[in-house]
Amino acid sequence: MQHILLTAGSDVDVMVHGLFKYSYFGHEVWITTTHVSLLFVMLILIAFSIIAGQAIKKGAEVPGNFQNVVELIVEKLDGMVEGTMGRNAVKYRNYIGTIFIFILFSNISGLLGLRPPTADYGVTFPLGVITFTLVRFNQFKYHKPKEIWADMCSPLPPWLPIWFPINVISELAVPISLSLRLFANILSGTIMMTLVYGLLKWVATIWPAALHVYFDLFSGAIQTYVFCMLTMTYVSNAIGEEE
């Protein structure tokens, strides 16, 4: 069980570890450190949302401290989505706000000594795939097939689809680059922190807190912002100007 905490091991070790093994219809299913970290993040988020929901339900006309904080969070998230997506924001602010809070808490869970869940490619790739699905769905919802074909052959006229394979590859690169960006940033921060704690032993007592501020808080917040921003940009590009 010492693998759950990043700093508990005596040597430098940044890999994902399997903790429990289950046999499930003939397949080996491992419960890894990522699952445990995700469980902690989910518990924190669920507890916070239940408390915030109670506070809003019996909300006062003049909000108290906690209600103020909750309203501020929601207002800031909605403002971010509205600033980027404009009039399409109403449909997407729930989703963007959700993944923003989830990715943010996953990134800064390194502060608790956990291995951040987003330092596992199995967590970030599904997020990229969700963005990709949203983009494709909106493209087919708001555009005719002829327009999509003309768009995919874009620099050349639609009857000459030489650029079509290249455009397909560049579209497929979207979820991969989105997820790899988040994954590699958080993983590099995790490796740096593990090296500091694993190699310096007792020398690393109080001052690594400054490194935590950079690698966990700053880098994690920036990458969260970038992921949500790029998702919103791709989706509003897919929706387009018309309607």
Binding site: S177, L180, A184, I191, I222, Y225, V226, M229
Partner: peptide
């Protein structure tokens, strides 16, 4: 600026990923 920098960072992160 932060958005553009984070996008520009991606290629460097690919190199880092190969090293890791």
């Amino acid at each position: 600026m932060l958005l553009g920098q984070a996008v520009a960072e991606t290629t460097g992160l690919y190199g880092l990923l190969v090293a890791i």
